Amino acid sequence: MTFSIVARCAETGMFGVAVSSSSPAVAARCAHARAGIGAVASQNVTDPSLGARALDLLALGADAGQVVDVLRGSAPHMEFRQVLVVDGRGGSAIHSGPRALGTWAEARAADVACGGNMLADAGVPQAMVDAFGRTGGPLGDRLIAAMRAALAAGGEAGPVHSAGMMLVREVSWPVADLRVDWTEDCPIDALAALWERYKPQLDDYVTRARDPSAAPSYGVPGDL
């Protein structure tokens, strides 16, 4: 019931996750990223604890492939799970259990891994990888392009209703954590519009947290 992308920007070291699903609030369960460490999507009969565990393994020095191997060998019910991982060197790995739902597929390259289940077409993840690779600009733009490519390739077998995108870089919190938790319209269109509104302010929010005296105007009544 989900398709997602995890990725690293080779130029900036930023990590990101984008995900969409027919179920509500998908990003709250599936998107995991940690600055300087990596990005993970845990989906399909989702166990959110796999995301945190995968990031902890990356932080200990495991690469993406080793993380997937450890989870396969130690976590329960992995036959139901999909886990996508990208590490700090741009390595990528995917686990898709044989009991993943419906038509499921996966694709990856350096700095990116994509996967989905209950898909309308098995080519969806490769279309996402291809779109990510040919798109320039900020990582968020590239993730949105991949999600749009997923829709163009067929997307999920039924309509999607939620979407989200998480970006991390040099601070300990996500510099963007954008969510469309439910809509009867296209959540990816809504997420893209939200990103276009948030993108020009992203650096300002980081500055406000680190040094309010250096922050630009807040642009609200009473702000001098």
Score class of each variant (00 low, 15 high):
residue 163 A to L: 05
residue 168 V to C: 07
residue 189 D to W: 00
residue 199 K to G: 05
residue 192 A to R: 06
residue 179 R to P: 11
residue 200 P to E: 09
residue 209 A to V: 06
residue 206 V to T: 13
residue 176 A to K: 04
residue 195 W to V: 03
residue 189 D to F: 01
residue 169 R to F: 04
residue 202 L to M: 15
residue 199 K to I: 01
residue 173 W to Y: 15
residue 198 Y to T: 04
residue 194 L to T: 13
residue 160 V to A: 15
residue 172 S to H: 12
residue 163 A to K: 03
residue 185 D to W: 00
residue 210 R to P: 00
residue 183 T to R: 10
residue 174 P to Q: 05
residue 204 D to S: 14
residue 168 V to L: 01
residue 162 S to L: 04
residue 178 L to A: 12
residue 183 T to E: 10
residue 212 P to R: 08
residue 203 D to P: 02
residue 183 T to L: 09
residue 194 L to R: 11
residue 181 D to A: 10
residue 206 V to K: 11
residue 199 K to H: 08
residue 200 P to F: 09
residue 200 P to L: 07
residue 206 V to N: 08
residue 204 D to F: 02
residue 204 D to H: 11
residue 170 E to V: 07
residue 198 Y to M: 06
residue 201 Q to D: 14
residue 160 V to H: 07
residue 214 A to G: 13
residue 216 P to A: 11
residue 212 P to I: 10
residue 209 A to P: 00
residue 170 E to K: 08
residue 208 R to I: 06
residue 204 D to C: 00
residue 197 R to W: 08
residue 185 D to Y: 02
residue 188 I to R: 00
residue 216 P to R: 14
residue 165 M to W: 02
residue 171 V to S: 03
residue 185 D to Q: 11
residue 210 R to D: 06
residue 216 P to F: 00
residue 178 L to I: 13
residue 181 D to Y: 08
residue 213 S to D: 12
residue 197 R to H: 12
residue 186 C to Y: 01
residue 163 A to W: 03
residue 207 T to L: 15
residue 192 A to C: 04
residue 212 P to Q: 01
residue 161 H to A: 09
residue 180 V to I: 12
residue 210 R to Q: 14
residue 200 P to H: 09
residue 197 R to N: 06
residue 213 S to E: 12
residue 212 P to M: 03
residue 200 P to M: 06
residue 183 T to W: 11
residue 185 D to C: 02
residue 179 R to K: 15
